[in-house]
Amino acid sequence: MLHLSFSRFKLSAAILLGTSLAFTSCGGNSQEGASDLSGSIQIDGSSTVYPVTEAVAEEYRAEAPDVRVTVGVSGTGGGMKKFTRGEIDIVNASRSMNASEAETASENGLSYVQLSVAYDGLTVVVHPSNDWAKDITVAELKKIWEPEAQGKIMRWNQIRPEWPDKEIHLYGAGVESGTYDYFTEAIVGKSHSSRGDYTASEDDNVLVQGVSTDPLALGFFGYAYYDENKGKLKAIPVDNGAGAILPSLETVKDGSYAPLSRALFLYISSKAVNKPEVVDFINFYLENAGDLSEEVGYIRLPDNLYKEQQQKFEQFTIGGATANQQ
């Protein structure tokens, strides 16, 4: 016969409970002269915009320690779903809201305002040993990436005859990302439409890895990933009819690197601006977005544009947040 006490069940449960109670005492650190606002702000959306918002949220803790700001990364599409249902206050977006999302928002009685907070320059890159691709036109990029190219445009000399008769290996953003939507819209002319036979990843570091180890590669991803890996990659200037231009802090900021420089957005709902902490947070965001976006690898807007965003937001909050402002 067995002589095992059954209290071990209870004991294990007690241990499990105990560990959960052990870490309930850490919390926000208050700071002198900080605002006495409290409440919570829920943000979700693009993982591209996430680093900027994370940086702002981090700094905002010193400003208003009692406001709980949380940021998720369910993607621009996922964030928009929650935003248009009214489940979150702010959505990080790496593209504009599309028609069906706008429809859902108005069905749920939400109006919203779109603010630009930083720029990103999608960079077209090749392997450093590639000595033929010295520039590329938008038309050539379209020829490579459009859906009709699938299975046909497979060699470099099909794009430009003087380029070598070698295979071309393509690397690009995965179809779920806002980056993909933006690139296809800017290059192919239609959002979410491209060839399917390329190496796709939602993780730009994977694309960096791919292009930097493949002498026949051509790829595209966010400027920050190129900037951090300059030694392993070569950026190609993009010609939009006005001469070939390399992406850089200046050319993206002044808009001459077109059409591949894009704005990163925040959307704020009419429901959210009823909360004073949201208004305060957004004002803080726009004041600091320039420095902080640069710090995390993006490109700041010109100062007058930040002013414009501030005015736009002010109008939205004062104007009773009735009309949608794009």
Binding site: F23, C26, T53, E58, T70, V71, G72, V73, S74
Partner: peptide
Amino acid sequence: IVIGALAYVPFVPKTPMDE
């Protein structure tokens, strides 16, 4: 992530109802 777990959470959850 699908459920809605976040990436930036500046506080330690205190109850099962926290993010």
